[in-house]
Design a protein around this nucleic acid. Structure first.
Lengths: 316, 316
DNA sequence: ATGAAAGCGCTAACAA
DNA sequence: TTGTTAGCGCTTTCAT
């Protein structure tokens, strides 16, 4: 590939002039500009992006840390980010981590090694203390609330949404309510679920909580345990409509009617939930992703709460 | 941030030695190696990735051109790519194009400007003649069949799968069969659907085909038209289980029973299809994505066919 | 085993 | 308005 020197030589100008043409600097005479442009077209020249980014100390590229890529919720967040990045002419790198702490830190290293201008954490495995120091190398925005002033966040009030959902079930007369979560107590979101549960129903019977639920299969596994507990729950709050689908499938397979024998409420208003008529807590993850992106480009460390909606359908 | 010169100075060695340590070159004495490592740790140094990529003329990063990011099928392909890229320590950049030809070419430019080593085309809007020239700058792999020798591909035999699906419906006694597609006749995949239809059922009544279907809402729109045609179809083959869900919803809303009044068959075996019990043509898109990635890293231009499966459930 | 020096391809301060 | 030149931060010959 030709480089800027080749262009300069053939156009009979200096590299600075070529650079000026490339960057639409007005201080170039029309003749020289035309001459340079002609050579650029002739040689089908494109500036090397690595060289440009290296000297500009900026890449207009951000990373999205996504623990799992078989989970619709993370896809929704990513889609929000992509919506905005396309508008702002930013590039997006996907950084899968499988909740591996080392992989997560290696991903954050990309701020330090200047490959990325910013990183969006859709979730995280490391403690904040391990993450915050990276904010000195680039913008970090989380999709959960944190009061670390160095970290911007686009978040949903998970505690409030869980309380609302549990209260809804209680008001419908349910007292034996179980729920599923993605991760265990190492996750802040899971801890908030516990607190919300206790606030509404009091102490949680251990048998009423199943973790590690990401997919429909996980939902089936959860249902197998929950629906054969000594005191069968009459309602289940699933973390995601796909997990809810697994629960629904298994419930039907053992002749339970929904919602008569078992009420189900899901999360994130995913297609499958719409199709099956699940009530769902919609945290508006696409909007969360969009907002997270905006915070990154604005280099803002604001804490923006995205409202959630509970959508009532036939499953409760 | 410290750079390699700072490290060299403080360690009392030359930059070449630091570089050797960084790249695990064996020709470094243990003392110098240790000295260098000590300074690296002290200064918390990380090599600048742009500078490394610039001089190595390689980025270990590939791009995935995805027209839409509200479509599960593209997500499945992306997930396949991400599965493999994580294993091979490659990075992945997502390139949304909305089927805009110019955006698509700008994305391909990233091969030319050395930002990307290869690009996977999950779909495309430009003619091959416009795309093929870019293969001189980096590996291009498509998720559809093409006989251009410069382009590798991981593809499914769409014609055969369409013929199978239509034949299945015909064998069930259906003669009035409609279908939906993503794009119109500008798409090769759509043209293959037409050919398959004609092979099984003969001439296609224009009212039996609806294009621009990507989401559930599109499915509802399609159903509104199809189910009010003069001669109502008795079966619909939807391009995707989400679209099928929209059709299902609308059919139920006008009191049609599935499959008694209307048979539905979807595509890609997505969660919603499993939940609603749709029969579906599974093109194994995750595998396609995985295979596409492998072709890129192997710099292979092979044409690899991924087998499809028809999964029979209650909807037909 | 080690270092000096020549790039990779570009931008921008400075001088003219 | 234009050109010269000094980097950006690294790898890799080529000597020694």
């Amino acid at each position: 590939m030709a480089n800027i020197n080749d262009i300069a030589k053939r156009a009979g100008v200096s590299v600075s002039t070529v650079s000026r043409v490339l960057n639409h600097n007005p201080y170039v005479s029309e003749e020289k500009r035309a001459a340079v442009q002609r050579v650029i077209d002739e040689l089908d020249y494109t500036p090397n992006r690595l060289a440009v980014d290296l000297i500009r100390q900026e890449t207009r590229t951000i990373g999205v840390i996504m623990p799992y890529n078989n989970n619709q919720a993370f896809d929704q967040l990513l889609h929000g980010v992509l919506n905005r990045s396309a508008e702002h002419d930013y590039s997006v790198m996907v950084l899968p981590t499988k909740y591996d702490q080392v992989k997560e830190l290696r991903s954050l290293d990309r701020l330090k090694n200047k490959q990325l201008d910013g990183i969006i954490l859709t979730s995280r495995s490391n403690a904040w203390d391990a993450i915050v120091p990276y904010s000195k190398y680039g913008a970090i925005v989380a999709c959960e609330y944190t009061d670390h002033p160095e970290i911007g966040c686009a978040y949903m009030d998970r505690y409030a949404s869980f309380v609302d959902a549990f209260r809804l079930l209680r008001d419908k007369g349910h007292t034996r309510v179980a729920f599923t979560t993605a991760r265990g107590e190492e996750s802040n979101s899971t801890r908030l679920t516990f607190k919300a549960y206790e606030h509404i129903f009091g102490e949680l019977p251990p048998a009423y909580h199943i973790s590690d639920c990401y997919s429909m299969e996980d939902g089936i596994r959860a249902a197998k345990q929950l629906l054969h507990a000594k005191l069968r729950p009459t309602a289940i709050y699933a973390n995601g409509d796909e997990v809810a689908t697994g629960i629904y499938q298994y419930a039907r397979s053992i002749q339970l009617e929904v919602p008569e024998d078992l009420a189900i409420i899901g999360q994130e208003n995913q297609p499958v939930g719409i199709g099956l008529g699940f009530s769902t807590v919609d945290h508006q993850l696409v909007k969360v992703g969009e907002q997270a992106f905006d915070l990154i480009v604005e280099k803002s460390r604001d804490k923006i709460e995205i409202p959630y909606h509970i959508i009532i359908r036939q499953s409760i």
